[in-house]
Design a protein around this nucleic acid. Structure first.
Lengths: 182, 182
DNA sequence: CCCTAAAGTGACGGATGTGTTACTTTGGAT
DNA sequence: ATCCAAAGTAACACATCCGTCACTTTAGGG
């Protein structure tokens, strides 16, 4: 009963993601996006009223995906297992941090993103507390610093082309035991 | 022999810095900048041909300032002293990482920034090697990961308002000895 | 086969940013 | 007092992006 679509929502979101990561919020335009999808600009307006609505929808979608997987952390028994699950998850969603920061730029949504972000941190407080209770994590370190530290670690640029597995395991080691020998 | 200026280069650079950090490269405009300086847009064109030239000049200036201080690292004896000097320096220049990333967006200057960046890393190789030679740093960790890690650590957002001194010393501890107890 | 409704197009008017230029202001030198 | 050159202004022409709207295309149901 209708004409065939020239792009799917998945393709739209993927193109949006790439553009956002490479151009940032201000550099993102429907023109570029339409070019990417080989479609006219007007076609996108059939689905989203404006750039803000599209980006908001997209980033909330990405965060939902991430939170969904994050909540599986409780399926793992013991702090150590949860810790490795979390690190692997963050590595596989290494772009999410950047996207959240872009989301915070959205006019009128700063609050929503702030609460979403702090909800996430809140949700992980239990994980941190478990680590401290099990005597694995140093008690005197602020919880939010520990979490921020873990999330930030994936953003370190790997210019020198070190293989991913070596890179990841090195980071894990520094997070756990530091870069000093003693 | 000339009229009094309404803004100094320092004021211009400071306003540029704030705008760049808050709006990003694409969101930065001469209009906003002129408003900030309470001056007409045209006045800025008396000194810089366009936005790209201004931003390029500004970021190179900032990096030069940073590199100048960085080179004082050799005035400190021993790895440990150099390590704390570097960390304190990075904390006091916590914006420079963001600015460098913006610089990498400058069309036609990616290469220049890449080499500048890798020069900086190159310059610090000696420092890392010293740490390894003194037996302080773990030998098997890639040098560039260690450096990237140190530089990245100041970017962790301190939302919960923990005092700077506690924040900084906690970060130092994690970098050195990790967040695990053993 | 024809009609319909969803999908897509292209051109519009408005807003904003850019770089230029002719103009005015101003302070020191003669 | 006058002149000049640097400093600043304001308006212009140009480009880009935005959101809209009247239009065309196309697949499926009757």
């Amino acid at each position: 009963m209708a004409r065939e679509r020239k792009f799917t929502t998945d393709e739209l979101f993927e193109a949006t993601k790439q553009l956002l990561l490479h151009q940032g919020y201000e550099g993102f335009t429907f023109g570029l996006l339409a070019d990417n999808l080989k479609v006219s600009r007007g076609a996108i307006y059939k689905y989203y009223e404006n750039k803000e609505e599209l980006i908001t929808n997209f980033i909330f979608y990405e965060m939902d995906q991430f939170l969904l997987k994050l909540k599986k952390i409780n399926q793992h028994q013991g702090f150590e297992a949860q810790f490795h699950f979390l690190l692997n998850l963050i590595f596989s969603y290494s772009d999410i941090q950047k996207l959240i920061k872009i989301g915070q730029q959205l006019p009128g949504y700063q609050d929503k993103f702030k609460t979403l972000h702090s909800d996430m941190y809140q949700y992980l407080q239990g994980f941190i507390e478990l680590g401290k209770k099990e005597g694995k994590l140093k008690r005197h370190l602020p919880n939010n610093l520990i979490l921020g530290y873990i999330f930030q670690s994936v953003a370190i640029p790997n210019h020198s082309g070190i293989p991913h597995s070596e890179w990841a395991s090195s980071i894990k080691e520094i997070i756990c035991h530091g870069m000093f020998t003693d």
